[in-house]
């Protein structure tokens, strides 16, 4: 056992990079999955819609921790063990995809139906309609809830600590093992997470307010 020093605090600050990195990777990965899920969810084909519903149900109806376990240990079983950072990124991306897919599905459906009908009447192809008419409008609606979801994603990356990826929470555990001042260390970790998440919460709230004002005019 030793005392906590400035070096430990620096270590935590540096570990924040990995939390941020993991959040960014998971957001990009989740974004790709989410677009696919959202498009499947609003598709004309029933089997695509059902597939998306099943995917969302499974990922939103089970704990993220077990999803991470399954990716981490499951990859081992398949004979290609993934390093913790990759397993965490993959698991978080698949999970985020389900939530982002639902958010974006809602945004796509919030665009008035007549917009799509007009585009169809003008003879635009499905992808052109989506790209030029629906998605630009849906994106404005989706911004606030997407930023709000980012808060959840940053918090979710802490679970990567349990499968051994060294990010902020795991760094806190490691320092605690050496110094044993759990209250100080984990409170500091909590404050650091708060500093990451709170600006996002506020941004999301502001965006939401701006949207509400725009729609009430």
């Amino acid at each position: 056992m030793r005392a906590i020093n400035a070096g430990d605090f620096l270590y935590l600050l540096l570990a924040m990079r990995w939390t941020i990195m993991l959040s960014v990777i998971a957001f990009l990965g989740g974004g790709i999955v989410g677009v696919a899920i959202a498009l499947m969810r609003v598709s004309q084909r029933r089997w695509l819609r059902w597939g998306a519903v099943g995917y969302i149900q499974i990922f939103q109806g089970t704990p993220l921790l077990l999803q991470l376990f399954l990716v981490f240990f499951g990859s081992d079983m398949l004979g290609m063990p993934l390093p913790p950072w990759f397993a965490a990124s993959l698991g978080l991306s698949l999970n985020a995809g389900a939530f982002l897919g639902e958010i974006w599905r809602g945004s796509i459906q919030a665009v008035p139906r007549s917009q799509r009908e007009a585009a169809t009447a003008l003879g635009l192809h499905y992808f052109t309609t989506m790209r030029k008419i629906i998605v630009p409008q849906a994106m404005r609606i989706a911004t606030a809830p997407t930023v709000g979801f980012l808060v959840n994603l940053v918090k979710a990356t802490s679970l990567a600590a349990i499968i051994g990826f060294i990010e902020l929470t795991r760094a806190g555990q490691l320092i605690n093992n050496a110094t044993f001042h759990p209250f100080t260390i984990f409170s500091t970790v909590a404050v650091l997470y708060f500093l990451l998440c709170w600006p996002l919460t506020i941004a999301s709230r502001k965006l939401e307010h701006r949207m509400a004002v725009a729609y009430n005019r």
Binding site: K155, S158, G172, F183, S187, V189, Y193, F194
Partner: peptide, 20 residues
């Protein structure tokens, strides 16, 4: 504060921190 910090860290603070 609770909504902007991970549950895992809250568990650590309570379970390992409070005995301190």
């Amino acid at each position: 504060f609770i909504r902007n910090t991970p549950f895992l860290v809250q568990v650590f603070v309570i379970f390992f921190g409070l005995p301190g």
